[in-house]
Design a binder for these strands. Structure first.
Lengths: 197, 197
DNA sequence: CGCACAATTCAACACATGATGAAAAACATC
DNA sequence: GATGTTTTTCATCATGTGTTGAATTGTGCG
């Protein structure tokens, strides 16, 4: 490892800012907000910690930047909701797997998920994100009784995300996507449209 | 608040150790391992931080003590597995809700869950607890193909626990237990014994 | 009553963290 | 070439964290 002992700008046009952001996303996704230190992010990006502050400001600001996901949830969900409730279970699952399996998107999603699960950033993300962003989308694909069905759908989706991506339990993480869709699709469909007590 | 400015033992027989342990459990369950400081636990228990060390040793030791749950998982699961796979979905769900809704047990469970979800304590708890403790129990109530069914059951249970207790989404947290059992029981049963692709 | 032991606080330490500001190097423009 | 701007590191600060050890107080026993 070459020691960078000299102050001042590095030669060339390195995109150091992007490297810092990527390192931050990975760390927030792995260790959560509190488990992520500015120094560890800087070390992973190969820069001095002061540079992290230079580019992103406070740790909170870095976190907010890390949560910006290069995909519009509405675009992702558009094909899911387009054809109404019938078959929506499978379409929802495929859309979810699509974004979670995209290496450009997953780090940010992981950072968000870890934050929600860890209560790192306080209840604001939790109380704002899920009811405001997720709820209205799901409401378009339930047959009826959204107040009963949506929490059930959400519980299975949360379980899937946690087991497959966040905690990454081997049996779940390694289940082929097609098998997963075939096995969990009917369950989501049941929650969306099936007979519900 | 009376200031305790004097060194030395307090009069009477206060169970300070238990107060510290309860405060620790609550904090670990709410904020995870990293979010919990010795000083905050001591403050919540109304003692000096050194007393936390006196009773429990290191922070890690305190954590381990907080994870000790006053219930044997095997006793909880015995009635679930006694009658085999038929009807096991509902029995499993009732057993789960039983322990999670028990105020003597929930704090420790929350501390454990938060730790698993937050990756606070490293992968050891995750890799040891779920496959070793949970897997063999579930294996007794699946009809066949445990390697396929158990992850699905686990995903729904994880989703339930997270949505209802850990993140405590209102719609899920407030769903009456009987409604929940009636709606999710059949899904768990399907994962355990139903037709699976 | 004296003593040993347990419980409790005070004081302090080493280290880690987020953050700030100045110095230095590279680059672009005139 | 000189200057202004951007990028980068070094040095440092204030604060917080887990932890240790000594001093003090209360209790139980002989």
């Amino acid at each position: 490892m070459t020691a960078r002992a000299s102050r001042g700008r590095r030669p060339g046009a390195p995109d150091t800012r992007a490297e810092v952001l990527a390192a931050a996303r990975a760390s927030f996704g792995e260790l959560g907000f509190r488990g992520t230190t500015i120094r560890s992010v800087a070390a992973a990006a190969g820069v001095d910690p002061a540079l992290v502050h230079h580019y992103f400001g406070t740790k909170d600001d870095l976190f907010v930047a890390a949560l910006e996901i290069p995909v519009d949830p509405r675009e992702v969900m558009a094909p899911v909701v387009a054809d109404g409730p019938d078959g929506a279970g499978e379409r929802l699952l495929r859309a979810l797997l699509g974004v979670w399996d995209d290496p450009a998107i997953q780090p940010g999603l992981l950072a968000l998920a870890r934050s929600l699960l860890g209560d790192d950033s306080g209840p604001m993300v939790r109380d704002a994100f899920i009811p405001v962003v997720v709820g209205p989308v799901l409401a378009q694909i339930v047959a009826d009784r959204p107040e009963d069905r949506i929490p059930l759908v959400a519980s299975q989706i949360i379980g899937l995300v946690v087991a497959r991506y966040v905690v990454a339990l081997p049996a779940m993480a390694q289940m082929p996507a097609e098998d997963l869709v075939a096995r969990m699709g009917p369950v989501l469909q049941h929650y969306l449209t099936g007979d519900l007590a």
